[in-house]
Nucleic acid binder design. Structure first.
Length: 290
DNA sequence: CAAGTGCCTTTATC
DNA sequence: AGATAAAGGCACT
């Protein structure tokens, strides 16, 4: 199956899958392998041609955000020279539409970890609690369902390298199972309301909630603040804040809720309804180009 | 190679 | 409200 990308619909598969928004994609040769539910599929990009196997076009369009008008989005967030530089460097990076459950657990695990370690944890979890799927000559593992993680012993989760996050994953999985909670339905709420609901889960603070909202619930205005975005703001956008505030967060290693809200609100106001796109370009630029 | 630092933070406590 | 400490362990230097 193929999709021909129109020139007005820029897309860069490699950057999109490498920028750290999703943790379970695997590149073998020129093919990217991904697992969605119990289905493994592969996809590659050759110039303006997208080729894929074992998945339908509708899913590809949705998952890779190909229905978003990226040209329009990028022109809207191009507010200054710094973001323009990031956009030029990673032109075609799109925000994925991930599965909310996998996204929630992934970002609960992601706190205070680097990307390599996050990938390792999620692979361990999938190997231990997911289902083995063979595709081409490779073995893959589906992401564990909530019931499976809810039943897991704390020690088993710790053994996957989760550390103190094991408790949060266990509690969150139990909360999802007990009420038959439909994470997808949060997408129907407004940004603020949906975030408030997410904060009820164990191990979910403002940062994790924003990531889940942006990467899986379609809230493109969410502007997650992590250490890299904080650095980018300090370097390039400090003139948007009082001196006192900048000095305060400069010598603190972590942000409190009030400081987080100020930084994130700046992003939403400054970049507008697609602030999340700006966030991801800035994030990837800060991590790789500075 | 050992030891130190940093990591897409949250929670508990004061 | 706001500050502070504690919480795995892996990857990188």
């Amino acid at each position: 199956m193929k999709i021909l990308l129109k020139p007005s619909y820029p897309f860069n598969l490699d950057v999109t899958l490498c920028c750290g928004q999703a943790f379970r994609w695997d590149k073998q040769g020129e093919w990217w392998y991904g697992i969605v539910g119990r289905n493994v599929f592969k996809i590659r990009q050759i110039n303006d041609k997208l080729e894929f196997e074992n998945v339908d076009t509708r899913f590809v369009r949705d998952y890779f955000g190909l229905n978003d008008d990226l040209s329009k989005i990028l022109s809207e967030i191009s507010r200054d020279t710094h973001i323009k530089r990031a956009i030029d460097t990673f032109y075609g990076l799109r925000i994925l539409h991930q599965n909310p459950w996998e996204c929630l657990i992934s970002y609960v695990c992601a706190t205070y970890k680097n990307i390599q370690a996050i990938k390792q944890m999620l692979l361990n979890l999938s190997r231990r609690f997911g289902e083995k799927i063979c595709f081409d000559e490779y073995k893959f593992y589906s992401f564990p369902i909530a019931q499976k993680l809810a039943k897991a012993k704390l020690q088993e989760l710790v053994a996957c390298g989760l550390g103190y996050r094991a408790k949060y994953v266990s509690e969150t999985a139990k909360m999802i199972c007990e009420n038959g909670f439909e994470l997808e339905s949060l997408g129907e709420l407004g940004y603020e309301q949906a975030r408030k609901e997410l904060l009820n889960f164990s191990g979910v603070g403002l940062k994790v909630a924003d990531c889940v909202l942006l990467f899986s619930l379609g809230k493109s205005e969410a502007f997650p603040i992590d250490v890299w975005i904080k650095r980018a703001v300090l370097k390039h956008y400090s003139n948007h804040f009082p001196n006192k505030f900048i000095k305060k967060i400069l010598d603190k290693q972590s942000l409190n809720d009030s400081e987080y809200r100020k930084l994130s609100l700046f992003g939403r106001k400054y970049f507008g309804e697609y602030a999340g796109y700006a966030q991801e370009y800035l994030y990837h630029y800060e991590r790789t180009q500075s």
